[in-house]
Amino acid sequence: MVGIVSYGAYIPRYRIKVSDIARVWGKDGEHVSQGLRVKEKAVAAIDEDSCTIAVETAKQALGRADIDPRNIGAIFVGSESKPFAVNPSASTVAEAIGAVPNVTGADLEFACKAGTAGMQAVYGMVKSKMIKYGMAIGADTAQGKPNDALEFTAASGGAAFIIGDQNVIAELEDTCSFSTDTPDFWRRAHQEFPEHGGRFTAEPAYYKHVIGAAEMLREKMGFDYDDFDHVVFHQPNGKFPLRAAKKLKIPFEKLSAGYISPVVGNTYSGNVPLALSAVLDIAKPGEKILVVSYGSGAGSDAFSFKVTPNIKKVRKAPFVKDFIEDKVYIDYAIYAKFRKKIKSI
């Protein structure tokens, strides 16, 4: 049995309210917040980046399960906000957790789904017995251009999964991907902020791929959506996953455990990993979890997990809910300083 043997999440402490961002740009905060179904978003501190977040998640994951870091054979870090254009966060994570030097890895980019792409990569490596354990991390300090719609949701956070074939807490029953060349969101080389296709990001991009992947996995495995106790869809905002669920006739209760975007924002590559972590925090043995990520460009990775009794052994604080609750509000000025949006410094 191959699956998740441990996981770790991290959300930075700082929050900015969507209404505070809206106020700066002369928009109706209440209206924006309701439209996006996002109240506030997590902001990394001035001394954090996607690499430090990746390290924190990796340490949490290692700390929960009694795994010798030297047995981690591969580390993939998915992010669209890497601190270096060239120079991997994967090797920094490996050094920080003591997995060096017998370890492979790389940084992955596929907009918001690089984290789940890493999970598939290490799943394959473990299943083929190339490595004993592999670590997949999705971590971002996502940035929206000032006064762009993305600025209301682009957030910081991430989660790490250790995949292995012993003491599995959630069996990875099957996975598949639905990908096409659909550039609904991009950031050209040397550009600081991403661009996007506005309303184009909805139907031909998000919904087509999320639903396409879910249906592809359903056909492959022959399940019924009712078989799942929990469902995680990528949450670029609070609205899209609800509509995707509605299209598939999945009731909201099944989304609720991992529905974090309203209070965390969209943590991009870290979004589905964080949401899945929140589900694992409360899932009972025997429960089934459907996970579908989405990355612009575009693709969705769908997974079916089955929780095992081992889950109780790794159920150690801090939980995603603890990170969500431990928060300090900052205003737009401090946010601009933390995220280096003040260009003269």
Partner: peptide
């Protein structure tokens, strides 16, 4: 302990990470 950026070397150099 937390893992943080210590210095950035003017945004061009190597980022020094470490404990806080």
């Amino acid at each position: 302990m937390v893992f943080r950026k210590i210095t950035e070397n003017d945004g061009k150099g190597i980022i020094a990470y470490g404990y806080k």
